[in-house]
């Protein structure tokens, strides 16, 4: 772990520069410990795959003081547990996805490209558990990985101007769900009826870095039923946490 200044009002903590769940678990553990310390001079944190950015108020403490504080917080947080016992996950979620071609705009082309069937793509996508490594790109956009080798794919040559909210996409070795309508270049393979970004609720974001996610294929009919339940406030949200 290295600490360096990042501009005049932030620091960057770099962990080993690899996309690996054990490394990401350390990032999240340190982020939690820093937030729990409730230092009023820390204005924001940005945990990512293998780095943690921390913004601070320069009138509250100097760079050197902040580094000392972070070292202390880290020592206390990581002393309690050996590296291997750092909890790897926070929540486990099962997210229903309809892979029908009405939603999965690129799934047929992808099957053709990969010389397999659409069913095989669905089978691959739903049989793996993914980790939410970080949020970024859009409010509530969770970067999840890692895709099985056979599903890895490049971004689209020309990004779409508008991808509908709740679309499920693939890019590189990552998968993710568009939290809102947005332009984007991910290959779209389906859509979940479950909103992942609910701006009017206290807890606006369904995902947090550290969550564990598995997708479950549903029919178009089930998609409509769940959509209806969500709109009429009948949806049983705890059904996602099984």
């Amino acid at each position: 772990m290295t600490i360096q200044p990042y501009g005049a009002a932030a620091i960057l903590i770099n962990f080993e520069q690899k996309i690996q769940k054990e490394i990401n678990a350390q990032v999240i553990e340190l982020n939690k410990a820093i937030l729990a310390a409730q230092l009023s001079g820390i204005t924001y944190t940005i945990p990512t795959y293998c780095s943690l950015t921390i913004g601070y108020d320069r009138s509250a403490f100097s760079y050197e003081t902040l580094c000392l504080l972070i070292e202390n917080i880290k020592a206390a947080a990581f002393a309690k547990e050996t590296n291997s016992s750092i909890p790897l996950e926070d929540k486990r979620l099962t997210i229903p996805v309809c892979y029908d071609e009405a939603f999965g705009l690129d799934i047929a082309a992808m099957a053709q490209e990969k010389d397999c069937t659409v069913e095989e793509i669905i089978q691959l996508h739903t049989s793996t558990e993914y980790r939410v490594y970080m949020l970024g790109f859009l409010p509530g956009f969770a970067y999840m990985g890692r895709l099985p080798e056979a599903l890895a794919c490049p971004r689209r040559q020309s990004p779409r101007v508008r991808i509908p909210a709740k679309s499920v996409g693939l890019a590189g070795y990552q998968t993710g769900i568009y939290p809102s309508d947005a332009p984007g270049g991910w290959q779209i393979i389906g859509q979940t009826p479950v909103p992942t970004f609910m701006p009017n609720q206290e807890d606006a974001f369904l995902f947090q870095a550290g969550d564990q996610v598995q997708f479950q294929a549903i029919s178009k009919k089930d998609f409509l039923i769940i959509s209806k339940d969500i709109h009429s406030n009948q949806f049983n949200w705890s059904s996602l946490y099984v």
Partner: peptide, 10 residues
């Protein structure tokens, strides 16, 4: 570069 945090003025 693996995706990492952005601060204002980067």
């Amino acid at each position: 570069v693996i995706s990492s945090g952005i601060v204002l003025g980067t």
